[in-house]
Write a protein that binds this DNA or RNA. Structure first.
Ligand SMILES: [Mn+2]
Ligand SMILES: [Mn+2]
Ligand SMILES: [Zn+2]
Ligand SMILES: [Zn+2]
Lengths: 156, 156
DNA sequence: AACCTTTTTGCGACTCAATTGCATCTACGA
DNA sequence: TCGTAGATGCAATTGAGTCGCAAAAAGGTT
């Protein structure tokens, strides 16, 4: 919880400018929101936060979120409640974020933790799922997702 | 693909009787369907298969599927398309399947593989995600989910 | 600064998996 | 055979996410 939306706006603008793509109010607002959170946020979470300072359509929030994933600034995490949650990629603010990639960021190889009690989802950037899994013959891996459920530090 | 729905009906009935719960036509039909599949099936997959032999409401199929998860005969797998897929637990036919558990079957500790091309989801019962993951202080694990995406043997 | 072209946004309608409420039916123990 | 807890059918509803299109920027150019 590093609640500091307003303070994150300049950083958001800089990161967006670095992509070479258009810097718009909805993009700044959504990115600043993600920058202010230490855990993954659903579309609804983001929209609610953004609504405190702007009037932005929910469809636009959906599209901005998808766009942020496309330009490798954020990644999306599937929840057990059929809701996507979004979080910044590890070094999103520092690096210039490469061009659009098909899916996840290439550097996105960390685990996710969801607390059974508070429902919050975190990225465990330290936990590299170095799976030396033996797949059946003929199977080829392109991506690995590790999801851990349990109790977070707050809720234990 | 071991397509043999009718042949699985006695086995389904036996497994259901073993739970001590009520043995109904929808339950037999849905379980026989799952028994006849080597890969995870969506609600729609199951309903379509069942419809060839019975007239069962789609809501009932939803409820039976949930019930099968509850009594630890099957487990559900979240897809990237926001659709649940269901598959029998490893030894569902042999064991007497314990009482209702809160979530996944306790013995459910295997990985899932989804093919990017054909979309089929398989359970990799051989792949035990023996994660020696280091969680942040205070975090406690209750469940680990490993999802692998790639190309299956058929599609490669 | 006015202009042009390309994106992006707002809004309404829509999709579709899954859920809910409720009346009716049924599996199965007594 | 009966009684009843539990299961089913049906219609309505929820809710995340998507689509089409016209109006509104963003940002480069003159
Ligand atoms: Mn992550
Ligand atoms: Mn499985
Ligand atoms: Zn928690
Ligand atoms: Zn395949």
């Amino acid at each position: 919880m590093k609640l500091a939306y307003l303070a994150k706006i300049p950083q958001a603008q800089a990161a967006l400018r670095a992509t070479g793509e258009r810097v718009t109010e909805p993009r700044v607002a959504v990115l600043a929101t993600l920058l202010s959170s230490d855990h993954a946020m659903s579309h609804l979470d983001v929209a609610a936060m953004v609504a405190k300072h702007h009037t932005i359509d929910r469809v636009t929030v959906y599209r901005v979120l998808d766009w942020l994933v496309g330009v490798s600034i954020a990644h999306r995490i599937a929840g057990d409640d059929r809701v996507w949650r979004f979080m910044l990629n590890p070094q999103a603010s520092a690096q210039g974020a490469g061009k659009k990639t098909a899916h996840h960021a290439p550097s996105h190889a960390h685990a996710h933790f969801t607390c059974n009690t508070c429902g919050q989802t975190f990225c465990l950037d330290k936990v590299q799922p170095k799976m030396n899994v033996k797949l059946p013959t003929g199977f080829r891996t392109t991506e690995v997702d590790l999801k851990i459920r349990g109790l977070c530090a707050e809720c234990k």
